[in-house]
């Protein structure tokens, strides 16, 4: 049952977006998220939605994969929407019942805030859907390289991330095995209240941690044996290189942020 978990759900396809350098995608996502906070009127949302729609079309990722990302945050979405609705004061009162006051401004703010959150989530899920975890860590390593100067071990952090990704399925499988072994010995993970259930998980986590530590020590030895000695003097099998489409993508992003900012300043609604 635990085997179905996928992390960083990559949607394999051949598209312009998939082929882009992962660094471009990370930067573009970041720019897109910033752009969402550069305006406060309807026209901005329309531009952002149109732009996003074009990107999804280009990426060939089915739309339902992208909206799937919203599901886990639905509660947060409702919560923030309700807060915005109830706590925004304004002149045009819509409903007044006891201590609850709903204003036109409140409704407007609620809708915009919810839209902003949705765009934020689906925008970043488009990135994870079109980039493999390994490419992502490569991009992070390369983008944060300047931090090396202030003694941040960027290469090592990226290496840890990619190893963690490699071991997720192995540890998931192991958890499954331990759970089954404990169940065969009469353990019960399904009944009782929450505290009871959490307590019942202890016999799973302890062997899991022990085995993870053992694996880590084995892996460190294997890495040593294969001459790993940190990022120094290391070459890359798949080095990141900007190509023409990547430069075009950067220009497109630049154009987009310019349009959004001007729209935010000058368009009335």
């Amino acid at each position: 049952m635990l085997r179905d978990i996928t992390i960083g759900q990559y949607y394999a396809s051949e598209s312009v977006i998939h082929r882009l350098d992962p660094r471009v995608k990370v930067v573009a996502t970041f720019v897109y998220i910033i752009s969402l906070f550069c305006f406060d009127q309807l026209s901005g949302y329309i531009i952002a939605a149109l732009f996003f729609g074009c990107m999804v079309k280009l990426s060939k990722v089915p739309f339902k994969f992208i909206t799937r990302g919203i599901k886990p945050i639905i509660f947060m979405l409702i919560f923030t929407a309700a807060l915005n609705l109830l706590w925004t004061s304004g002149e045009h009162i819509l409903i007044k019942a006891g201590f609850i006051t709903i204003t036109v401004e409140g409704v407007k703010k609620m809708v915009f805030m919810a839209l902003r959150l949705i765009f934020l989530i689906i925008g970043s899920s488009l990135m994870t859907l079109t980039t493999t975890p390994n490419q992502l860590t490569d991009a992070i390593e390369s983008l944060f390289k300047p931090l090396n100067k202030v003694k941040v071990p960027v290469h090592e952090i990226a290496m840890m991330m990619s190893i963690a990704l490699r071991f997720i399925p192995i540890l998931v499988e192991e958890t499954d095995k331990i759970m089954k072994a404990q169940m065969a010995r009469g353990a019960d993970f399904e009944s009782g209240n929450i505290i009871q259930r959490v307590k019942n998980m202890v016999p799973i986590f302890i062997p899991l941690f022990v085995s993870a530590a053992r694996r880590a020590s084995d892996l460190a030895l294997a890495m040593d044996a294969r001459c790993y000695h940190g990022g120094e003097g290391r070459t890359k099998m798949k080095p990141l290189k900007y190509k023409k489409p990547d430069i075009i993508a950067y220009l497109v992003m630049f154009g987009y942020i310019c349009i959004i900012i001007t729209a935010g300043k000058f368009l009335p609604i």
Partner: peptide, 18 residues
């Protein structure tokens, strides 16, 4: 516990990279 990468070819390339 001795395969480092998520893709076979990248794992084989790990030693030469180092």
């Amino acid at each position: 516990n001795q395969i480092i990468s998520n893709i076979v070819e990248e794992d084989v390339g790990f030693g030469p990279e180092n």
